[in-house]
Amino acid sequence: MTESSRAERTVTVTMAHGLHMVPCSEIAKFVRDFDGEVRIRRDNVSADAHSVFDLLQLQAEQGALLVLEATGEGAESIVDGLARLFEAEFHVER
């Protein structure tokens, strides 16, 4: 495994309603085709980003700090993309 196959970034939840159902599903959708592992950690609770149910259980409200971790081919761009989603508060173009 090379250096570039692992990436990590900390983001802040800015959405007024926190990481609710729709953002969770956007995350799962975004990482869907990524073969490696993507986890989102809040304090010591870690969720599989592929699973909406897991993500919901983070209960990340506005202001929560989340660590995005990806491992595998293209980890850096996955983390980048996720961080952009958080910045745009998930107002994604369809």
């Binding site: 729709v22 599903s25 799962a28 869907r32 699973s51 909406v52 149910f53 897991d54 369809r94």
Partner: peptide, 25 residues
């Protein structure tokens, strides 16, 4: 829902879709 009610309503079904596709599930 997106057509008739707007994107934010459509997004609810979008979320359901991701839930049902949840690999863990």
């Amino acid at each position: 829902a997106t057509d008739r009610l707007g994107q934010q309503y459509g997004a609810i079904f979008g979320a359901h879709l991701q839930m049902i596709r949840d690999p863990k599930l």
